[in-house]
Design a protein around this nucleic acid. Structure first.
Length: 693
DNA sequence: GGGCGCGAGTTAG
DNA sequence: CTCACCTAACTCGCGCCC
């Protein structure tokens, strides 16, 4: 964050890096004694000039402006206003104080450099050497040896290597961490059967009862528990914080990291002394932006100062924010029995090298839709609001949402809405696409969310990161689903999920047209909905299966005749074999649904626009080959093929009675199809193997 | 003026 | 040799509609 006061002459000239602070230039456990200035300088040198850096600057400027506004508002406050806000603050403080509960003993357990420690356990030769779990583009965790160089989680690997050239990179192995996490949880269970798992390597335990039963202290319990974790896991260490509430316990577990513990007694005086000198940044929920705002707008750095400036807090922030800040100042946190909060949304996103190739983007979108659908089915969730997230080549993030009348969960339904949203943004050059589903079906509320950490790790598991870190070969056998949460009953579960989802989706499909009409009349969200029709004819599906075994020799042999003269063929498809053709005939569709092993092949058709291998085809191309599009790719096919080395092909086909099309067209803004009735336009379809172009 | 939908921003690891 | 900065879930505030 910018250390300089906003109005002062900028220090850019002398030491520009001092102004460039990212999340990971902040001190973390194990980073004491790090040459912070040197780290900052290197991070700055590596970053400056990049699109990422420019975007960071843009964000910073925005925050500075926000702070400037707040300062202006502060300056305008008259003594009478301040007196008013002081009474408001005092009232809130009294109310909060009344809720203070010092009767519970909470323990926050945090594994030390968890992923790195697990990796060292399975490969002892790593011991004592600086090591990071992750790859060149992102690091998940660094061990303590590496942290001494300033390397830490959420830092891009190439910067980490610059900071520490000796750094050993170990790829993420989620399965392993889940296994060890389960071992630690077995230990937690003994002290609090209702413990709250915050992530794979963190948990909160209410040990009040255990302490009573055994007539012992939180300190003793923490010691015993840590020893238990160490034994059970065969050598992993953890740190613990013992305090009267979860907010404090979390802060405390960080104090004597690694392999240590800190106890804050259940005594108001002790608690207040502890909190008063604590920097606000140490509090969970206060990140770099909030820290910046508190410091530069209000001159607040420690928790004590929150209370001292409580009138300003109430004057500047919303009720809920003010409540939060004041409770932090009072060191009041959660002490209740953990209410298992059901998740509110579920999402999936992927980063790739920035491109404006629409075919590629739709292909990515389909991948993400499928992954999201898989996750939804795993959890048995359906939701109404779909949000598309985009990150442009310049790192600007956009989100676009739609809320539909019915709950959705299938890949098709997701794509139906997602492709609309994406289409509206074209043309754009993107480096990330994500999809989120929220607004869940009420009947399914209460499903406990899996607190498993799915953050940096997931990125490491995604094809993109793997590809970057390893050769093409190795990513072939990496099916991301392999690494996903290992429920023991996974297979049965996912089957059930599938079944149920089909059960309720199929009737909807039958009513598809009327559904569309309904939602159209009741909601303005789907103006162009009429474009999309699906048809999943069983006859066609069977036809396809009958021809399932057909083999093709070469991508080029299939595609070249379709391209006709005048189109060049990208080199990278040279010699690719079409060994997994699974459609009826040698049509475009076949090519599309084929896994072109090792090589990415992509075909996209949309409103008479068609591109093959990134080459855009003229409208006549599709028109001339109309018969080739007359096929369906049944979902069945996807299911059968999932788990093989290629992903999926989604086809949206317009296949409705002529008169219906005509009536729909009336509402359409775009120009009607040139040969109405004869044509069967296809909305979009995609294919991919696991490779980059 | 409450509820809802959407978009942006924040946090954590 | 070079290149390379993530992902999930939440919260807040605004604008719209009844």
């Amino acid at each position: 964050m910018l250390a300089m006061a906003n109005t002062e002459s900028s220090g850019d000239t002398a030491r520009p890096w001092q102004c460039y602070n990212t999340a990971y230039t902040n001190a973390k456990a194990g980073m004491e004694g790090v040459d912070k200035e040197k780290v900052q300088r290197i991070v700055y040198e590596m970053s400056k000039g990049s699109q990422y850096f420019r975007n960071e600057e843009r964000k910073e400027a925005f925050i500075r402006e926000k702070i400037e506004n707040m300062r202006a508002r502060c300056a305008k406050l008259k003594p009478a206003d301040l007196a008013h806000y002081q009474t408001v603050a005092d009232k809130i403080i009294l109310e909060l104080e009344a809720t203070r509960d010092l009767s519970r003993i909470w323990v926050h357990v945090d594994m030390d450099a968890f992923y790195a420690a697990v990796e060292t356990l399975s490969d002892p030769s790593l011991k004592g050497k600086p090591m990071a779990v992750g790859g060149m583009s992102m690091i998940s965790t660094a061990n303590y040896e590496a942290r001494r160089f300033g390397v830490r989680a959420a830092m891009p690997g190439f910067i980490a290597r610059k900071l520490c050239p000796e750094l050993i990179f170990v790829p993420t192995d989620f399965k392993k961490y889940t296994y060890y996490s389960d071992l630690t949880r077995k230990v937690f269970q003994k002290y609090d059967p209702n413990f709250v798992a915050a992530s794979l390597d963190e948990a909160y335990l209410d040990v009040t009862e255990v302490c009573k039963e055994r007539g012992t202290t939180g300190e003793e319990i923490a010691r015993e528990l840590r020893a238990g974790v160490h034994d059970e896991t065969g050598g992993l260490t953890c740190s613990a914080g013992v305090a009267p509430n979860r907010l404090l316990a979390k802060v405390c577990s960080d104090i004597n990291k690694p392999n240590g513990q800190f106890i804050l007694p259940n005594d108001r005086m002790a608690v207040m002394t502890f909190i008063s000198s604590l920097p606000v940044r140490k509090i969970g929920g206060i990140g770099k932006v909030t820290e910046h705002i508190l410091r530069d707008a209000l001159g607040i750095s420690t928790c004590e100062e929150i209370l001292q400036k409580s009138s300003y807090i109430c004057a500047l922030f919303s009720n809920s924010s003010a409540d939060f800040f004041l409770s932090v100042g009072l060191a009041i946190g959660g002490t209740d029995t953990p209410q298992v909060r059901s998740r509110r949304s579920i999402s999936n996103e992927r980063t790739f090298s920035a491109t404006g190739d629409e075919a590629f983007l739709f292909c990515k979108l389909a991948d993400i839709a499928e992954m999201l659908s898989t996750d939804l089915q795993k959890e048995g969730l359906r939701g109404r609001t779909l949000t598309l997230k985009l990150k442009t080549a310049s790192f600007e993030v956009r989100t676009r949402a739609v809320t539909s009348q019915k709950n959705i969960c299938s890949t098709e339904d997701i794509m139906k809405h997602a492709s609309k949203l994406l289409k509206a943004e074209l043309p754009v050059s993107l480096r990330l696409i994500g999809l989120r589903l929220s607004h869940f079906d009420e009947e399914k509320v209460g499903a406990p969310s899996d607190p498993t950490q799915k953050t940096l790790t997931d990125y490491m598991l995604s094809g993109d990161a793997l590809r970057k870190n390893m050769g093409d070969q190795s990513s072939l056998d990496l099916d991301p689903t392999d690494h996903c949460m290992m429920h023991v009953e996974e297979t049965c579960l996912s089957k059930d999920g599938h079944q149920t989802s089909c059960d309720y989706r199929d009737p909807l499909d039958e009513n598809h047209l009327s559904n569309l009409d309904d939602s159209k009349s009741t909601s303005g969200n789907f103006e162009e909905k009429e474009e999309i029709y699906e048809s999943t004819s069983n006859a066609n599906a069977e036809k396809m299966n009958a021809n399932d075994n057909q083999n093709e020799d070469n991508v080029q042999d299939v595609v070249r005749p379709l391209l006709g003269p005048g189109y060049s063929f990208p080199d990278q498809f040279e010699g690719s074999s079409l060994d997994r053709v699974n459609s009826v005939t040698k049509t475009l569709g076949d090519v599309a649904s084929s896994s072109v092993s090792q090589k990415k092949f992509l075909l996209w058709v949309n409103d008479y626009k068609c591109s093959i291998c990134g080459i855009e085809m003229p409208p006549s191309f599709v028109e001339e080959r109309q018969e080739h599009f007359d096929f369906h790719l049944a979902e069945k096919l996807q299911k059968e093929e999932s788990g093989t080395d290629f992903k999926t092909c989604v086809l949206k086909k317009r296949n409705v009675p002529k008169d219906h099309i005509a009536s729909q067209r009336k509402h359409k803004k775009q120009k009607p199809s040139p040969k109405e009735g004869k044509h069967i336009p296809i909305d979009a379809f995609f294919v991919k193997s696991n490779q980059n172009f």
